[in-house]
Design a protein around this nucleic acid. Structure first.
Lengths: 344, 344
DNA sequence: GTTAGCACTCCGTCTCTCTGAGTGCTAAGT
DNA sequence: ACTTAGCACTCAGAGAGACGGAGTGCTAAC
């Protein structure tokens, strides 16, 4: 592949990203030292090779998904962030945060605002956070609330109804049981198998208390896989994307999760032909992972049209994820976690 | 106002609701025994009086907001629900539910599905539910979770960070304090003034514990006013409504609350000129309250274009709210509530 | 007061033309 | 052998004009 051809492709993508209009040979003359005729010849070849396409005969060229792929992988230059920009991004993040989720969602919101795209946050699986507290609280006849707090500060509660009322003794047993067997346990270890073992270890209490345990299992599963999307409206107002596709996408955000699962290893840029599962034509998705204690904790992502400013947005995204990583561990240092603190 | 004129107006609204096209004099001949010329004369007068308008000279008539108002208030006949329809609606509600919120949101979802409109649920204010449990749970250095459970089964938690760690003794004091002063208290009584009194009653503990109390107050305020919107996508695909208005409406659902506040006294149908605060041109909103223990507990609402089938949808809405009212009280009978149950 | 008849209005659609941007090809230049 | 200037060609989009049809307001007769 000719060097000049690559420069032309790159120039076309750059132009198209800012203008949104098919790019003609003359516009490229400003970027590549050659006559329009030469450029046209090259463009024709690039089209033959599948990197460009023409909306109609007498229009300029538009990059294909294959063209974007090459551009992003090989051609694009990322704009390094200036100190001013970093300051600006920092100012969009909270100075302080109560839970990791709060921090990450703030970043997600900031990124959505900044890029005018939708953003997505997912936590990785398996989940390394530990159970730091489980409590069962009676709230009415046969009604109980199970409360679970994890080491990263997430709190989840679930109402459940049992077939019978629990005695004070049963509750106390469960309380001790939890303290001995669950506190400090990584969520990832709460598999169906371990739960079964644990339930059996309850002995005579098994029959009465096992519903609580299975609710607990459900809760960990829900904690396990959470996705949150922000800035949806940015997609709805984006004219490059199909409204109805966006709407159905917003409906089942869950489908995203399966896709994001494959992206925790590092920065990833995917285009709609590559994102099976959820399909929005002409869309692209950039994700970057963030970590905690040296292990991947989740990913922050950006969903927008293919025509977005990759050279700016990728640095934004990476900066945010690196800040998240830093801020989580900084906070960790200041906050000695207490697992299984006694009740008040 | 002439009887025939009213029949004509009614017919125009009926026609327009199904067709969505301006209605001409000939179409009305099927409904009103008169020649098209006569009908035209009447229509001209109805227009002069502000009940109808013409998109352009040679088009039929479209009802104005004033026309809809008259139609809904005086002319419309509601289709009473058949037993089959009732069964169908019943099947869309859950047989059983854990919290009132769950039930109401299921109904909201069902109504959205049924009408292809957006639906909204709000709880009334002042709130009559009681505090049944408050707990403070330490989760890390200077980090605490406040958990509040109310008599209607709602659970709310909030993470907060204090300036210092609380001693075991302080926590115990707070626990007792809550049991004595807050358990069983209606949320509506937790005003800034009472909080201040309570804080002062804490004596020497005041300084350290007052942040907890003020967080508690915040929580009750958040519980107090919750709105939840379902079926947003139905509005986005509705061509009678302006996309951008819908998008900005979805962004600040909160503005709804102020409006809904005025609608707890009974069935209410409002059109966009009457709904100050949030404005979606050409929209209408129907709300109906539901109650608990004989007191209004909240309202279920329907937001859609003005051109919706009022004679069907109003009975749907009313049926749902009456079922909610029934189901809540049936459940109440089976579930002796325990206020301030002891911890496990 | 009601109705038939008629001229009128105006939207939506269709067709036609024109313009301009951009192309592919060819032939000359380096 | 590559590059470039020139030119004929294509085609989307805008604009102008024509036309059909739905629906009106008005008038005059019933």
């Amino acid at each position: 592949m000719d060097d000049r051809k690559l420069r032309i492709l790159s120039a076309i993508v750059d132009e198209y990203i800012v203008s949104g209009e098919p790019v003609g040979s003359k516009a490229i003359m400003a970027h590549v030292k050659a006559s329009s005729a030469t450029i046209r010849n090259e463009m024709a070849e690039l089209e033959k090779q599948g990197y460009l396409e023409q909306p109609h005969t007498s229009a300029g060229r538009v990059p294909t998904y294959k063209g974007y792929r090459l551009y992003v992988d090989k051609l694009m230059e990322q704009d390094p962030l200036s100190e001013d920009e970093k300051k600006q991004l920092d100012s969009m993040l909270p100075d302080d945060f109560l839970t990791e989720k709060d921090l990450v969602e703030s970043a997600s919101l900031a990124l959505a605002e900044l890029t005018q795209c939708a953003t997505v946050v997912a936590n990785s699986t398996p989940k390394f956070s530990l159970i730091s507290k489980v409590e069962v609280i009676p709230t009415g006849k046969r009604m109980y609330v199970i409360l679970m707090i994890t080491s990263n500060g997430e709190i989840k509660n679930k109402v459940c109804r049992l077939e019978f009322d629990l005695t004070h003794e049963q509750l106390e047993f469960f309380d001790n049981f939890v303290k001995q067997n669950l506190n400090g346990l990584p969520l990832s270890e709460l598999s169906d198998a371990t739960i079964e073992n644990l339930t059996e270890a309850m002995g005579t209490y098994m029959m009465t208390l096992s519903p609580l345990v299975s609710e607990l299992l459900k809760m960990t599963k829900e904690l396990d896989r959470s996705v949150s999307v922000k800035g949806q409206k940015n997609l709805l107002t984006c004219k490059d994307l199909d409204q109805t596709e966006i709407i159905s996408f917003l409906d089942n955000e869950k489908e995203l999760m399966a896709f994001i699962d494959g992206t925790f290893s590092g920065l990833s840029v995917k285009f709609s032909p590559e994102t099976d599962g959820f399909v929005i034509h002409n869309s692209s998705m950039i994700t970057a992972p963030f970590s905690k204690d040296g292990q991947t904790a989740g990913a922050l992502g950006l969903i927008g049209p293919m025509r977005i400013d990759y050279s700016k947005f990728i640095p934004y995204l990476e900066y945010f994820t690196s800040r998240i990583t830093d801020m989580i561990s900084e906070r960790d240092e200041n906050t000695d976690r207490k697992d299984g603190a006694s009740d008040g």
